Amino acid sequence: MEKQNSPTRSVERALDILECFLHKKEMILLEIAERTGLSSSTVLRILNALQEHDFIVKNPQTKKYHLGSKIGWLADMIPSESYDELKKISRPFMAALNEKWNEDIHLFVPDGNSKLCIESVDSTRELRQVVKVGSRHDLLRGAAGKVILSYMDAEDRKKVLDGLAFDEAIFEKVRERGFALSLGEREEGLCGLAVPVIDKNGKLMATISMSGATARFENNLAEKEAEIVRVGKEISARWQNR
């Protein structure tokens, strides 16, 4: 029988702590302890070890912990072969959207309770949304997250929302219109559109998003909506017929 203080158990506890940050970017010690069911002293000991290796960083002002730079480096090393074909199909359409509107275009795939950016065509504008390839973001804010949630199984969506009050009509509307709109949900002053990429079985494979400063993005919004919906359908068709 495995002892509670065995090396394996210590690793499991460290992983439990890291997984807490899939749901929230910053937390104080007590909140991490509550989420993991571990004692504050145990959590503190493991957090200190993770800080030494740059997996966790503590903000001295707020006393909150967040993921460190080492996590990002590891994420960048994840083999991307499984997404190569999807990126190859999507890239020309993303480049065309970027060339026309000079806004940030991102390709996200569902990744547990998060969305993972696997491709990006960046705007040359000063005011824009910076999303790095390999970065993960929660699903509760932004157009891309809304699309992924909309195409989830209802029970899985309920687990991700974790008791938060969301109107199911929002997700029904996204599926009916074929796109999601975000006005300052991820970051104040930024606006985003996202559409699904669907496989031949009707399952969501990815989402294409376009984002930019609200002040300029709302100009020609209807045209942008129509354009990105067309692109989503084109990519879906290419993916289904590959």
Rank of each mutant, 00 (worst) to 15 (best):
E155A: 11
R125Q: 12
A95C: 04
A95L: 13
I198V: 14
S114K: 10
V231Q: 05
N219S: 08
M1G: 14
I28E: 15
S114P: 00
C191I: 06
R125T: 09
V133G: 01
Q61V: 14
A33Q: 00
K203T: 12
L221F: 01
D16Q: 12
N220W: 02
D54I: 07
D76H: 10
I28V: 01
D162Q: 05
G134T: 08
L29G: 03
G72I: 03
R125N: 10
G192S: 03
R238W: 00
S120E: 14
V197L: 04
P110T: 11
E52T: 04
V229T: 10
G145W: 05
G142C: 00
K100H: 06
V11A: 10
Y83D: 11
S41I: 15
N48S: 15
V131P: 00
I56L: 08
F21D: 03
V197G: 03
N98T: 08
L107Y: 04
N102D: 15
G72S: 11
W73A: 11
A180H: 03
L47D: 01
I148S: 12
G232P: 03
N219L: 04
D199W: 08
L30V: 07
K100C: 03
L44G: 02
V229L: 09
C20W: 01
M152E: 07
S69F: 06
N220F: 08
L149N: 10
V147Q: 09
L15S: 08
K203D: 13
E119C: 08
S39C: 00
G142N: 09
L50M: 13
D138M: 12
G142R: 06
L22C: 14
D162R: 14
A75V: 10
E19T: 15
D122V: 07
P92D: 12
K200Q: 05
L183V: 13
E176T: 14
K146R: 13
